[in-house]
Amino acid sequence: MSTATANIEGAGTGAESTYFSDFASALRYWRTRRGVSQLRLSTDSGVSQRHLSFLESGRSQPSRDLILKLGIALDVPLRQRNAMLLAAGFAPAYQERSLSDPELASVMQALEFMLRQQAPFPALVVDRLWNLVMFNEPAAGMMKWLLGMPEEAVIPRDGSVNVLRLMLSPDGLRRHLLNWEAVCADSLLWIQREAMADGPGSEATALLAELSILPGMPSAGHLPNLERRALPFLPLQIARDDICLNLFTTITTLGTPHDVTVHELRLESFFPADPETAAWFRERFGG
């Protein structure tokens, strides 16, 4: 089995997230992460600075409502708000449903509608770790074409394919990216942001470490040179079989979610950056 095929069929990192051992360290982490002083957080949350100091030192223990209030004030993602609650001995406040849950049927219908609307151009849905959960036919066709897979091959929709791992691996999609250095740097920044949000011991931290040591990868802190770009976006310059495609992508998230799974979904839509690329996709996937 080739590595490229293994990347399609392989599972995720499997790392378990430990996050923080106590609420005090979680609160200190998030306040520092947001660059907010205790005085500013006191003003934003309506909690006295003295009480915040006691919470961060462990001299005082928070109530469940106070944790949620501070999580909102610090704009902590839902998964990490649950982690803060667990660290303080409380049950999670936000559910994490499977996409197959009947209560998420309307969300699935909305995503499927957006995927169909994007055709003949590719679009896919990933979770916060960029595990593939949904895609339209042009996205599947593009992946199979780039990886040399047969048309009848099945691409899993269960999250077992990690898009970043598939794209950044030297014998995965990366070998077809003419500007792979810039794409790799941008991709590492995406997962680095998730790792910083999750804190130490998380799945995102493990994935970042795994991707960072792939051959030829820039450091996770490397920033692309924006001054050299003539376009207002990072193009995806793809080449295979004498065919050159120029694409750019947009990322869509679902607003006002109250479920961890929904909060973490991202819809990545690919758009042609030139008429030739648009014509290629219309001819191949226009039906």
Results as ranks from 00 to 15, higher is better:
residue 16 E to K: 13
residue 151 E to T: 09
residue 275 P to A: 07
residue 212 S to G: 10
residue 195 A to T: 05
residue 144 K to L: 04
residue 104 L to T: 02
residue 87 A to W: 10
residue 3 T to R: 15
residue 216 G to P: 00
residue 72 I to S: 12
residue 179 N to P: 01
residue 175 R to D: 02
residue 97 R to D: 07
residue 76 V to W: 04
residue 259 D to E: 13
residue 40 R to T: 15
residue 37 S to Y: 09
residue 95 Q to M: 11
residue 103 E to G: 10
residue 213 I to S: 12
residue 117 Q to H: 13
residue 261 T to I: 05
residue 158 D to K: 12
residue 182 A to M: 06
residue 232 P to D: 00
residue 20 F to S: 02
residue 145 W to Q: 14
residue 17 S to H: 02
residue 210 E to T: 08
residue 96 E to D: 09
residue 217 M to F: 10
residue 279 A to T: 05
residue 113 F to K: 09
residue 82 N to M: 05
residue 238 I to W: 00
residue 33 R to A: 15
residue 190 W to E: 14
residue 99 L to N: 10
residue 24 A to K: 12
residue 149 M to G: 00
residue 272 P to E: 04
residue 5 T to W: 10
residue 8 I to Q: 02
residue 170 P to H: 13
residue 183 V to Y: 12
residue 25 S to M: 09
residue 7 N to F: 14
residue 116 R to I: 07
residue 193 R to N: 13
residue 216 G to E: 01
residue 191 I to K: 04
residue 25 S to A: 11
residue 206 A to K: 11
residue 107 V to C: 00
residue 24 A to D: 11
residue 207 L to T: 01
residue 50 R to Q: 06
residue 213 I to P: 03
residue 31 R to W: 04
residue 170 P to S: 10
residue 77 P to T: 03
residue 123 A to D: 00
residue 181 E to Q: 15
residue 117 Q to Y: 13
residue 75 D to L: 08
residue 260 V to M: 10
residue 187 S to L: 05
residue 246 N to E: 14
residue 25 S to N: 08
residue 193 R to D: 15
residue 217 M to K: 10
residue 215 P to Y: 03
residue 175 R to V: 03
residue 1 M to P: 02
residue 140 A to K: 01
residue 170 P to Q: 10
residue 60 S to G: 00
residue 192 Q to I: 01
residue 276 E to F: 13
residue 136 N to C: 08
residue 185 A to C: 11
residue 85 L to M: 14
residue 44 D to K: 08
residue 104 L to M: 13
residue 256 T to M: 12
residue 38 Q to C: 13
residue 4 A to M: 06
residue 177 L to M: 15
residue 198 D to M: 06
residue 25 S to Q: 12
residue 140 A to F: 03
residue 19 Y to H: 14
residue 266 R to I: 07
residue 71 G to L: 11
residue 261 T to Q: 11
residue 177 L to H: 14
residue 196 M to S: 08
residue 44 D to S: 12
residue 141 G to E: 03
